[in-house]
Amino acid sequence: MTRLARHRLLPYLLLLPGTAWLLLFFGVPLAQLAAASLYDPTGSLSTGYAMTWALGNYPDVVQAYWPQLSRSFGYAGLALALALLLGYPLAYAIARKAGRWKNLLLVCVVAPMFTSFLVRTLAWKTILSDSGALVGLLRDVHLLAPDGRLLATPFAVVLGLTYNFLPFLVLPLYASLERLDHRLLEAASDLYASPVQAFRRVTLPLSRPGLVAGTLLFFIPASGDYVNAELLGTPNEYMIGNVIDSAFLVRLDYPQGAALSFLLMAVILAVVFGCLRRAGTEEVW
């Protein structure tokens, strides 16, 4: 083999393990899921499922589970808004104002992730418990009716989502804020920009890559989540993840479950591409 040929081949050889892995463990199952979403919806375990290209599965599931679909994106959106309100100042403070506490604070943001997602969500169940201190306090100050509750409400679900996915938003934001060149802010103030103006014209635009990456990392798992709705909510708060779970495991309606999974993926992909096109890929990754 000539040196040139080897040079040409090398990148492909390097790509081979990763590509094979992706094809085998992502491509194949995905194709299978796509096929399942087009199976005859009247099929069953004992009679088997026939491939009938039943595109009707898609409008059917949208019609049947419209409330859960819209709720998923609604709750994820609300949680995202809350997380931005909490996360941006937090990331800003850690990146620019924390000084020697920076590493410790970062560890604090990440530390909860060392315990399981499930355990953390269960912990919120205890915190928000009807007989817990928090609810007791809120009742005493009349922020909550005497028989009011926090657990098993939309509030609890959105709170759970916000809490569980906050680090995914904070870390990329931190990374881009940390890289921000301080001299630009000095220049802005030399040019008579007020702190607010400097933030709007310099800090915010320069932190946009982190904002976009964080938003995506937050929104994607949050909209597909079903644990928070299951543990902190009631049937009236169930999201699309709960429906997919029950379609596959309880109702054994594989075509419907697969169609919903694909739909969810499609919507999320559309959101991702929308975001990336506006922000430009190079800036984000």
Binding site: S44, P235, N236, V243, R251, D253
Partner: peptide
């Protein structure tokens, strides 16, 4: 039977929200 199971389970799941 399987048909009944699916029918009843689907109706029930609708009410319990999933």
């Amino acid at each position: 039977d399987e048909q009944q199971e699916r029918q009843y389970e689907a109706k029930f799941q609708q009410v319990i929200g999933a």
